[in-house]
Design a protein around this nucleic acid. Structure first.
Lengths: 247, 247
DNA sequence: CGGTTCATTGATGTCCTTCAATAATCGTGG
DNA sequence: CCACGATTATTGAAGGACATCAATGAACCG
């Protein structure tokens, strides 16, 4: 699940306005940056949850393995996100880098101590967890009743949205994970994911489909195909502004 | 809300030392009990989240409706459970009574205020949310990769477990919800749920299958069929003690 | 009791998976 | 830089698990 609380830019803005440089991310400011290579884990499911992490750059997959070898990817974590906040004694999942990744860490003990004593941070932490909960619930809805096409569109739309709010490469969605990761996240097989991407490409919804990025040509249609219409109006505005720009 | 993390043991110790018998449920002690009839809602998805609820008796379903009418049941809430804790501005789902139900309520404002100021309660609230998160993640795993049979077995096992720890009617699982509710919760159709129940009955895993209760004859087998083996040892012990009793 | 809702069971259909082969991409060493 | 194998992705054909459609049967309630 996406653990996005605030994008970097947003965090910076808030810090500036309040003249109190306190966001959850700020807590990690003085911690040393650690480098994690692709495929390397930063912790495993069941490990004692000793640390809370900030992802400075890169991306990670969050997953669980069932006894018979099946894997479920429960989320992806990107730069600016926090990891390991809403946990009790042990990690509920493993976390593994998708690409070269930089992280910072705090001990839970310190993290909890600081957060608890701060008037500003405590509500932030609560908001963070609520967002996390909302994201997981959306994913439950996706898994419980959406078709393969809807699942993929929902997935792409979420990532498009993220890349739009960050302001980077308009309508080009970076996908650092493999097809297998996407499949395990969406409750599908790698073949079905591949087929759906091809299908969307054929329909003209996607263009320039590559292994680790796609260009969304018709965000509005993508939103329609995603199946929840709460994001529909949002995508409409994107498509219109995109259209204007190209004319 | 201050989010401190203590293990259960630590929290209990502190409570004991301070002679403050405070749990989250205690907060509702002086609130008037409200009666809710079957089918009646206590709030709707999207409503402003003004209250936190304690379920005193009865049961509720928690669900979301998609634009095209599809319904997803994201959970069930039973007596002793709290409802509406991990939310931001609005409710993420609707809550509807399955049977005659008694609830108590507090305003979020008061709830947050009291919880935040209490050394005992703050960690309790955090633990509560973490448990909720763990449960939702388990459900994600179920929906992402389990077969219909595994889903039903997992569901029954969870409820068996609950009724065992409560000490009531050994191995008889109460199911106050309809088959449709179960189906919408498990990401299946009503027919498939029905067929799987029949199948388990035929296998001898279940006996005395009724509309709103089933008797689990072979908890161990049920656990095996559920697909995650973390609960397997637990069920083994049940079956053995059950077996001894009957000899 | 009789109507209504809810659950079960069967027949058929379909969406996704599985199996299998090919193709594209990446990394590595010559 | 290209060749090479290894990994990853795409595409096709066949099968299966669950959904859909339809009918019957059981439980609930005034």
């Amino acid at each position: 699940m996406p653990l996005a609380s605030y994008s970097r830019e947003q965090a910076a803005k808030i810090t500036f306005q309040q003249a109190q440089p306190e966001t959850l991310n700020c807590l990690f400011y003085r911690q040393p940056v650690e480098f994690v290579q692709p495929g390397q884990s930063i912790f495993f499911e069941g490990d004692e949850a000793k640390h809370v992490f900030e992802v400075v750059a890169g991306a990670l997959r969050i997953f669980r393995i069932l006894s018979d070898g099946r894997r479920v990817v429960t989320g992806f974590v990107f730069d600016g996100d926090l990891l390991g906040v809403s946990l009790r004694k042990n990690y509920l999942y493993s976390a593994e880098a998708l690409v070269d990744t930089k992280i910072r860490r705090l001990t839970r003990k310190n993290f909890d101590l600081v957060v608890r004593q701060s008037e500003d941070l405590a509500p932030r932490a609560f908001e963070f967890i609520c967002d996390e909960m909302a994201a997981v619930q959306d994913q439950m809805v996706l898994l419980a009743c959406k078709s393969a096409e809807e699942r993929l569109c929902t997935f792409l739309l979420k990532h498009l949205r993220k890349s739009m709010t960050k302001g980077e490469g308009q309508s080009v969605v970076k996908l650092p994970m493999t097809r297998q990761d996407m499949a395990d996240y969406l409750g599908l097989t790698i073949e079905t994911v591949s087929r759906m991407i091809t299908k969307l490409s054929t329909k003209g919804v996607l263009g320039c489909v590559g292994r680790h990025s796609v260009k969304v040509m018709k965000p509005m249609l993508l939103a329609q195909l995603a199946g929840d219409d709460d994001v529909y109006e949002w995508a409409t505005s994107i498509e219109q502004s995109e259209g204007r720009r190209h004319n």
